[in-house]
Amino acid sequence: MNFSVVVNQFWPLLINGLAVGLIYVLISLGYTMVYGVLRLINFANSEIFMVGTFATVIVTRDIFKFTSAHDALHGFKLVATLLLILLASMLFSGVTAVLVELVAYRRLRSKGTNRLASLISAIGTSIMISEGVRILTKSAPVPTPRLLTKFNLISIGGVDIRIDTFLVIISAALIFFMVDRFVTKTLLGKAIRAVSMSEETSKLMGVNLNRVISATFLIGGLVTGAAAFLYMQVYETTVFNVGFNLGLAAFTAAVLGGIGNIRGAFYGGLTLGLFEQYASAIIGGQWKAVTVFSVLVLVLLFKPNGLFGEAIQQSRV
């Protein structure tokens, strides 16, 4: 137990917590949106994230031919390269998510069978993807070449904000804002919200259920892919089971905010990210996962609908 660290390191921990929390927010969208329309945990979302991290590595290393020793990029070229890699990562994850829906959920859904069968089938898909990657990479961690020279961007009151942290915070917040706008303002978003309120009624209103569910998986996958890209800019290494702990944390964030609730996921992710940073500073990093789950259990006991559960009906998926 070391409480003084919270006082000494208050601002750095806050910045890190924001960055980690925003990555959780993006991944938890993949859980919360799918849960909204299917009422099922998207068990393969952690693998969708993992695919995104590997897409980032492959595009950076094998398509753009960057090595760890290359000259630093600057200005427009840097921004364009990063954007292209981001898009590739989102695309890979998005396509994976749509495939997961096709393989794991669609047939079982059309049969209308029990939920456990869908869950096991999703777990099976998840095992398939992660084992496939494990065999291909021989279980070894894979580093990505560094594109961003990590300098301190700004220093406020003795607290340095590094360029990659800054990038994560700004882009994640922006992406979240875009998803939120999409779901609340567009026709497809409206359809997604309708399906999550009542599948039967939205079918009667002429919503194409299969298309909406595919679209939900696609959006969830795209956002998770973006999270994977941002994660790789900060941590720079990935491994076949990278998604496991992050996926659990992101799911916790989704439940914290009230699962199925998009804005709830935002607050849930931030709360969890910050809590995790301070808690592991106090009681040690190895207990991080335990603190995450303790939060989850406590929230479920006292506020089973999540901290922001039913309050924000408008943006409920």
Binding site: A117, I120, T125, I127, E131
Partner: peptide
């Protein structure tokens, strides 16, 4: 090396063909 992979595929197949 691939037995877990086969296991995953088997889970998906069986669940889709015989959900009960």
């Amino acid at each position: 090396n691939a037995r877990q992979l086969v296991f995953g595929i088997a889970l998906v197949l069986i669940m889709n063909l015989r959900p009960d």
